[in-house]
Design a protein around this nucleic acid. Structure first.
Length: 445
DNA sequence: GTTGAATAAATGCCGGGATG
DNA sequence: CATCCCGGCATTTATTCAAC
């Protein structure tokens, strides 16, 4: 570096600054100073806005707390009324909040009206009935985590500085989608549902409408890696996590947790490959929620600051390396899935990375959910196979979604029918036009 | 200026442990 | 038992630097 700088400065000296050059430099300096001023004033404005929003947030949290206090004291004293009470939380708080919020109430909830809701869910399905026996702990993801505070061994979430890639934004400051983040392609960030606790935890926010694709081993062809579309939809009593493989859109998985959905996929994918190692997986990892850039994008969504249990994270954009690294993967992960991608490189049972995937004889399989023959759903028989445990995940046949007996009785049917008429496309997931999931595209109400 | 090797850093997947 | 988080490991990619 130093050696190259020296000759240059010497060269300048020898040529001597002409008057014109001097004027040019002066002009340039002036431009730079003006630009600096502009940026400074913009920064100032942004800071003011941040302060404003902070104050707003405080105010809203205060109000929210006031709303919640009476109901929480109720639940302390009367356990039997807990279900109806949580329902009242859902119905009362958001409507008020949306009025209070200066940031466009239209973004506050997914269903803007009862009519909208029934456009997606048949009228006979009652929200209050949704947490049925099929799902004993509908708000596991949210409530369970929230209760964790007293835990000793798992410390509370800390807001550590996380590095993110550069996020291209449009004029209005919104990220330009689709956006490639690592091997994930984000098509829709969805909308933050801040008024229901199940839609966020300390670590993650699960925005409704969130849609990404990612490559992973096929559940059908042991030789193949295919693109899976992951979406989050509104299950009313909590988020629904959908994972749909491109090579078998009718064999998508729906679960009440991200882990549940992906565990099912991994279990089948492993079984198809006759791999006997653990099927444990981190749902948030596979959905991308743990990815710093995705976290940041979600955190920046409107209303994210109103998620009271969520621990705000700090992010720092990495320069050079990080940003450049992502681009090559766009082609690899999203399109051709060529050999460079770890999973794609696999002639699956052989040279997968890390040695993890090799069915080596010494591999240890202590995990509870090792694949069993019975775990593999028999697609050919009924097309709506349910993996071992309905609680963890449901395989739903897309073409029967609207009327599926497997799903309809708990209100899941039709939710997030993400495979609409666009099944043929390689990369593009369905209905990701303008931030709104096309939830009801195939729902026959 | 170009090329190639060495190094650093980021990423993705998995196993295992903690939790409820 | 299901879920989630964390850490380890292998892999990939970017950067740096020396040699030509």
């Amino acid at each position: 570096m130093a050696p190259s700088a020296t000759p240059k400065s010497r060269k300048d000296k020898s040529s001597g600054p002409s008057e014109e050059k001097y004027k040019q430099l002066k002009r340039k300096l002036k431009e730079v100073l003006e630009e600096h001023d502009r940026m400074t004033s913009r920064l100032k404005k942004a800071r003011t806005k941040i302060m404003q929003l902070k104050r707003e947030k405080e105010l809203l949290l205060d109000r929210l707390e006031r709303y919640e206090r009476p109901s929480s004291s109720e639940s302390d004293t009367d356990l039997t009324s807990s279900s109806s009470e949580s329902e009242s939380d859902v119905s009362s708080v958001p409507s008020d909040e949306s009025h209070l919020s200066p940031h466009g109430p239209q973004r506050s909830t997914v269903f803007k009206s009862q009519a909208d809701y029934h456009a997606v869910y048949p009228p006979h399905i009652n929200i209050q009935q949704l947490p049925s026996s099929r799902e004993p702990t509908p708000n596991k993801a949210g409530a369970k985590r929230a209760r964790k505070e007293p835990a000793v061994k798992r410390p509370p979430v800390k807001a550590k500085l996380r590095k993110i890639q550069h996020i291209p934004v449009d004029d209005s400051g919104k990220p330009i989608l689709p956006l490639q983040v690592g091997i994930l392609t984000i098509y829709n960030l969805g909308e933050v549902v801040y008024d229901r606790k199940q839609f966020h935890s300390e670590r993650y926010i699960y925005p409704v409408g969130y849609t990404i694709t990612r490559p992973y081993a096929s559940m059908i062809d042991a030789e193949k890696t295919v693109t899976y579309t992951c979406t989050v939809t509104d299950g009313v009593d909590g988020p629904r996590f959908h994972v749909t493989p491109e090579d078998a859109p009718d064999k998508g998985v729906t679960a009440v947790t991200a882990t549940g959905a992906w565990t099912s996929v991994i279990r089948v994918a492993n079984a198809v490959r006759k791999r006997e190692h653990s099927n444990s997986a981190s749902g948030p990892d596979y959905f991308g929620f743990s990815h710093p850039t995705v976290s940041k994008l979600i955190q920046d969504l409107p209303n994210a600051d109103k998620c009271e249990n969520y621990v705000w994270q700090r992010f720092e954009e990495i320069k050079g390396r990080g940003t450049k690294r992502v681009n090559p993967k766009v082609e690899k992960a999203g399109l051709a899935l060529p050999s460079a991608s770890p999973l794609a490189s696999a002639t699956p049972t052989q040279h997968l990375p890390n040695g993890h995937l090799l069915p080596a004889p010494h591999t240890h399989h202590t995990h509870a959910s090792s694949p069993k023959a019975s775990d593999i759903p028999d697609w050919s028989e009924n097309g709506s196979a349910v993996i071992d445990d309905e609680k963890s995940a449901l395989f739903y046949p897309t073409d029967t979604l609207g009327t599926s007996s497997v799903l309809s009785d708990d209100g899941v049917s039709g939710i997030g029918d993400i495979e609409d008429d666009d099944k043929g496309s390689d990369v593009l997931p369905p209905s990701v036009d303008d931030g709104e999931m096309d939830l009801d595209s195939e729902v026959d109400v």
